[in-house]
Design a protein around this nucleic acid. Sequence first.
DNA 1: CGTTCCCTTGAGATCCGTCAATATTAGTGG
DNA 2: CCACTAATATTGACGGATCTCAAGGGAACG
Lengths: 243, 243
Amino acid sequence: MTFASHAFPRVLETSIFRIGLDDNDKAYLGSLGFILRRYPPHAVISRQGDGEDRIFVIHSGWSCISTDLADGERQILDFPQKGEFVASRAFEGEAPESFTAQTELMVFEAPAKAFVAGLAHSPSLAGVLLGAVARQRAILVQHLTNLGRRSALIRTAHLLLELGVRLEKANAAKKYGFECPLTQYDLADALGLTAIHVNRMLRELRERGYLEFRHGSVHFLNREGLEHFAEFDAGYLRLPGET
Amino acid sequence: MTFASHAFPRVLETSIFRIGLDDNDKAYLGSLGFILRRYPPHAVISRQGDGEDRIFVIHSGWSCISTDLADGERQILDFPQKGEFVASRAFEGEAPESFTAQTELMVFEAPAKAFVAGLAHSPSLAGVLLGAVARQRAILVQHLTNLGRRSALIRTAHLLLELGVRLEKANAAKKYGFECPLTQYDLADALGLTAIHVNRMLRELRERGYLEFRHGSVHFLNREGLEHFAEFDAGYLRLPGET
DNA sequence: CGTTCCCTTGAGATCCGTCAATATTAGTGG
DNA sequence: CCACTAATATTGACGGATCTCAAGGGAACG
C-alpha cells in the first residue's frame, strides 16, 4: 500500500511544485514524509467533515473532490489531475469537501501539519504553494461561472476542453483528445445537470461535429471551433512559472 | 483619496489577520505600505486581465468580485465584507476576476509583491494567510454548490443567510438582520438567475414567513426555520482561530 | 415634479428535469 | 467463447422551473 518516500522527487519533476524551488527546497520537501499510496476505485480518501489533515499530490488515476448534500446528492468541484495537489482540510478547520478515487488512484501523501510548518523553513515553497492555490482557485472560479452563466451545452463543452488542456499540461493527453473514465453521471454532478441531459448535450456536440465522447475517451473533432463556441480561453490554466 | 498608513493597525483588530500574529508580525504588516483608499460607488478597482497586483482589506462598504463574460454578462463570485481580504491577481498571473465597488468603499490597499515577499520574514503570517485563503475557498465552494445543486429558492435563502453570518462576524449586522444595498440585479448575477426570478423568490420567502428584503435591508423573520429549510450550516464561515 | 433606477407582476416560450423503457457495454463466472 | 448480470448509455414523452418579453408601479434624487 505504501512505497518508499524516495519516489517523491520523481513526481516533483512533473508536479505543480516543479517550478520555483531550488535544491534545498526540494530536499526539504522530500523530507516531509511523503509516501506513495494506492487507492482502489471509488475509495473515499477523505470525507467531508474529517478532522484529519493531509496533503496529496496526484501521481496517476482519476479522482474528484465534491461536497455532499443532505439528500445524498453531491456537487463535484473538480477532477484533480496528475501533478496537481489536494489539501483535504485546505489548511484550516474541518474538511469542507470529500476526496474520492474514481479509478485506481496513486497519490503522494503527507501530513499537512509538517507541510505547513515547513513553510517557515522554505519561504519559496510558500510562494509556490500560493501560486498553486491561486491556480486551483481560478479553476473553481471557472466552474462557478460555468454553472451560473453558461448554457448546459456550452458548460459541457467548456469542462471537456478544460480537462483536455490540463491533461496536456500533465503530458497525459493523446493527440486527438484524452482518455476519460468519467461516466455521464459524474459529468452531471460536476455540471449541475442530470445524466440524461448530459447525454443529450454530448449528442448535440457530436452532431455539431465538435467532439465525440465514447468508450471512455474524448475525441476532439473541431477543437478550434469548439473553443470559440464555448468561449474557452485556457489562460486560467497557466501553471506557476509558465509564460 | 489616501490616508495615513498608521490607520492600518485599527482594521487589523477586526480583520481576518487579527488572529495568530504576534506583535512583530503586526508591526511588519504595518510596514508593508498599506494605505486607506476611498472608491466611489460602481468604481472598478481592479479589472479582469489587469497585470497590477494589489492586496486589499475591506474597511467599509460593499463590493463584489466577478468574472466578465464576452456577451457583457457577469458572474458575481462573492461580496467581500469588512475585515476580509481580496487579492486582485490571487498572487499569480493576470487577474482572473474584477473587483468593483458597489457602494462607497473604503479599503486598505498594498502592493502584493511586498506582501508576498514578506511571507519569508513572517512565517506565521504565511500560516494566517493560508487560513484566510482557505476560508475564501470554502465560501466559493458553497457558492458553487449553491449554483449546481440547489433550487433558486433555497439558493437565494442560502446566500442571504451566509451574508447575515458574515456581517455578524464583522460586527456589522443588526439584531434582526442586516443592511444590504444589493439590488435584485446584483443578487441575480451572484445566484445565476434573472433579476425577475430573484424578485419572485424573495416574494416567496416573504410569503412563507422566512424573511423580508425591502428598502435595502434584510429582516429575518424565522431564522431557525430558514436555516433548516435552506440546509444552511455556518461551519464553513468559521474565522481562522475561531473555535 | 420629473427623471431614473429599481421593483413588481403577468403571459408565453424554452430549457432542463422526471419518469419510463430499451439498448449497449463491461464485467464475471462457466 | 458464451451466458448472465450490473452498470452505463440512449431515447421519448411530459411536466415544471426558469427565462424572455412586456408593461406598469414605487422610491430616491435632483
